[in-house]
Design a protein around this nucleic acid. Structure first.
Length: 274
DNA sequence: CGGCGGTCCTGTCAGC
DNA sequence: TGCTGACAGGACCGCC
């Protein structure tokens, strides 16, 4: 489900809903998602107050008042939805329910269970196994054409796989990789190391632009993504290539092609993306 | 180390 | 209608 814009949208929604709130009861209905839940998961969350919510890559970081942080990753199909009133039923794939001191329920639902949760010391987040090797945040100023050019140097993978590699730059998933390569006029098949500095300038700025526009649109809803409010995003209406195989290119009218790279679908215009 | 393919899991949809 | 196979927003792991 979620790439960076979707996770960012959820973080913002959760911030408004639960900063300053206390978890009075936490229900966990499984022993594991992608990984086992940490020991004493429920016990370590109950009676904790939420102090802040931040994001690193696609990890939602919920900072608690005892110096620990709840890490949440949504995998492909995870959701975090805030319900303002008690529900009298639980959906099939609701795995964790947080009850706050205002009577709200924050529900983690994940059909495919590719998501994960962990609890870490806030001071050691950057040393966490899943965080420590992550690359640059694409929305920061430090991610620019020069930095991109440097990280792609000598790489023989197709540029699309390189920008989806979280050890280089985080948060760019399949949709936004396709879209930013299209708006840059760069073929997804080009070898990463072959991009000029000028092309990297373009690509870095298009990645930022596409991500920011998607955040503004509340993310992209392909099938079942919803923000923490339960609302769908609408950036999918702005897709120029993603999911448009066989349809005309918005620029030149050629048919959009679909190929498979690294086991994932790539959509592009063979004419506009040289 | 870089690069590639397999894998976790469930749901949906197209095609027969 | 029902079965089968392809495919889906992610990313780790092990192998070469």
């Amino acid at each position: 489900m979620p790439e960076l814009p979707e996770v960012e949208t959820i973080c913002r929604g959760l911030s408004g809903a639960i900063i300053g709130r206390k978890f009075i009861k936490v229900q966990n209905f499984r022993e594991n998602l992608r990984f086992p839940f940490p020991v004493n998961f429920v016990k370590n969350l109950e009676d904790r107050k939420v102090e802040a919510i931040t994001r690193r890559a696609k990890y939602i970081l919920i900072h608690l008042d005892n110096g620990t942080t709840l890490m949440v990753h949504l995998g492909m199909s995870g959701r975090m939805v805030v319900h303002n009133a008690l529900r009298n039923s639980r959906d099939k794939h609701d795995h964790v329910i947080f009850h706050d001191d205002m009577g709200k329920e924050i529900v983690f639902n994940d059909p495919r269970r590719f998501g994960m949760m962990d609890i870490v010391n806030s001071s050691a987040i950057n040393e966490h196994k899943l965080i420590k090797d992550l690359g640059l945040e694409p929305l920061l100023d430090s991610f620019n054409g020069q930095a991109l050019h440097e990280m792609l140097k000598g790489r023989k993978v197709p540029v699309k796989l390189a920008i989806m590699n979280a050890n280089l730059v985080v948060g760019v998933g399949n949709i936004y990789a396709c879209e930013s390569l299209f708006s840059s006029g760069i073929s997804p098949l080009r070898l990463a190391g072959s991009l000029s500095l000028e092309e990297c300038n373009t690509l870095a700025s298009e990645i930022k632009k596409v991500l920011l526009e998607a955040i503004k649109a509340g993310g992209s809803t392909l099938k079942d993504y919803v923000a923490s409010s339960g609302e769908a995003g609408y950036f999918q209406h702005n897709f120029k290539v993603y999911g448009r195989e066989g349809q005309p290119c918005v620029t030149c009218d050629d048919e959009i092609k679909r190929i498979v790279q690294g086991g994932r679908s790539t959509f592009y215009c063979g004419n506009c993306q040289g």
